[in-house]
Design a protein around this nucleic acid. Structure first.
Lengths: 203, 203, 203, 203
DNA sequence: GATGAATGAGTGTTCATTCAT
DNA sequence: TATGAATGAACACTCATTCAT
């Protein structure tokens, strides 16, 4: 990624370093070296190490969020919206694997600042998913007995774990299109209103 | 949790502390204080801080793994096996939320020792899921066009994210039974062989 | 060395360990293991780690001191006395190399207790050497222009360095008799009254 | 001593602290305080505590070694060379008593790094002494029945013990010139070819 | 007496952050 | 703006010593 200015240059370098070493094992000096600048320069653009991480989320997740939002706004069908959400997420994660790694790991930190970000910005992104499901239920496309909050998490978990394999996989790496197709198999078949579902519990 | 001996006492205390603060922010002295022992005592039972984390995984995940394995061994039907796997996982995570938190966060660390554990012990646990899917496909219960490696990740992601909500949720907390039911809606409907699946791509 | 009782057993073990690792790098547990007893047992016989070191000196150097003193008391000739001192020292160091190592290293510590020992017990031992020289000067065997305090140090340094080679030497190991003979060459030739000595200084 | 730069400043401070307390009892914070810098600054110039000690030897002993080597190279007479070696050593030790103390104590450590240094750099320095003796024997100035390896140790031991008194002495402090003169009495008288030596052993 | 588990004070080293240049 | 030397707080780990058994 070509950095337009030093702020972006640092974010890009930090994303690589965080992805490789994790936030805690990453050193400010690692980031500075990766960006080919002096350690101190970083503090002209960011308040502290945490601020860099938050800024990475702000920039990258913000971009995915607004792009997805814009694309969805142009559609009417909940199923197509869901498809857009899924494809946008997976494409972004495939394109910027470093960010994918950072997001999947660091967003889970119990750190106060991270938690705050997760509970506002990231929650808003995920709620698009809940809104799509609610819409699909209104449109009578998605089964109405599904709880949107639970399902949004279920879908997101499936998405995240799927994209996570791309970063760490020892297993053979399947193509984006294949993987998306497989995911739809599970998700849409489950969501669609016409499918009867088992209900008996095991002993 | 009542600790049978000091080894278990420390693991229990460490699990709580790691869940609350994360591995990196947790101090050895925090764990010692939680266990009401001296800092140095910890080193009579563990080699270092990392060793504690690995031991937590070994103990807790090992228990889930072997219990699930035993229960599955008694069954023939892949769908029931899948149900067992899912219920066992969710029950364990619901029961020991501290461990759930530790697992969901720390197992993703890029740290060498953690990665090693993940790539062997945890991978073996997950592969039960792939085996179940393969069996279901042989039994003609599950659709044969699904790739077990991708699907095992999809399902695990859904499970993990679902249980993760229980630890952090600001959202209302749904019951274990409700949540399991919802998950089956999606997963089994997607897996079952009789369901036709869409294939057209969006423009 | 067979220990008559536990006190001696510990001293013997400690001497070995101190010789091998040095006082600071030696662990109480190393000594306990070497003596095949429990760590705590050591504290039934010694106040602390320093006390063990001091006790080693007391026992070993005390033995050399009193034996040398007794042998010298039976002689009249200063040259023979000197010979006895030298042979006794070197024989003891050859026989108990572990103690030799401990003495050559630890007696130099700036530690308060060690310094105290060195300035009393060890100083008394060394002063036998000064007394012999003084006697030799009275007997007109040794040159009177030599300062006994300087010469005692000179001789002791030569002795110590000589015996030290036995413990560490990469160089070929000369026999005790050879080495003693060589030492006498230097020392007696220098001490004896009849030898003219150069006095001109270099430019 | 005025430190030309921070590296030298730290070495100078460390030399003082090591001389006073010994390597093991010296704290990094003691050195930092002595140098009036922060603890962490030390690690910008040295890898660890051991590295500081080795660097002290490298600098100080290296200086004595090369200076002595240069001065000896200009001479032909082994006796004069020996005189140069002795005077250089004693002058250096008299001038930098802290280093003298460090050298006399720490060079004896059984520590791996120290031993390595001793067996290479220090051994090379001492071998100058052996070479001088060999030359003197070729020149028929020194007795040929003396073993240079033993004698170099004997002389060095005498030198070291002599200079050691300057650091610790409770005894009256003799002048450098006096002491050198006394040392020559013993050493040269013993080395010189013309002196007959006793050979009879005591019973 | 003998044990060895437990203690907790002590320290080398790291690294985010600052600031004089 | 940019630098990178300097800072010093923070912490994992060690080990001499204690004491309940």
């Amino acid at each position: 990624m070509k950095a337009a200015n030093k702020h972006a240059l640092i974010l890009s370098a930090a994303t690589k370093v965080f992805a490789k070493k994790g936030f805690f094992n990453a050193r400010i000096s690692d980031i500075a070296k990766e960006a080919k600048i002096a350690d101190g320069t970083i503090y002209l653009y960011f308040n502290n190490k945490h601020d860099i991480l938050i800024s990475i989320f702000d920039k990258e997740l913000g971009a995915i969020h607004s792009q997805t939002k814009d694309m969805i706004a142009k559609e009417n069908d909940a199923e197509i919206m869901l498809r857009i959400f899924i494809i946008n997420y997976l494409r972004a994660m495939k394109k910027n694997k470093s960010f994918a790694g950072v997001m999947q790991l660091e967003l889970r930190q119990t750190d106060k600042q991270i938690r705050e970000y997760r509970d506002t910005q990231f929650a808003a992104y995920l709620n698009m998913l809940a809104s799509i499901i609610v819409l699909g239920q209104k449109q009578n496309i998605f089964r109405s007995d599904l709880n949107p909050d639970i399902i949004k998490r279920t879908i997101y978990g499936a998405l995240e774990e799927t994209s996570r394999v791309w970063n760490i996989s020892l297993e053979s790496n399947y193509s984006l299109e294949d993987t998306i197709q497989q995911l739809f198999q599970l998700i849409l078949a489950g969501l669609r209103v016409q499918h009867p579902v088992i209900s008996e519990e095991p002993a």
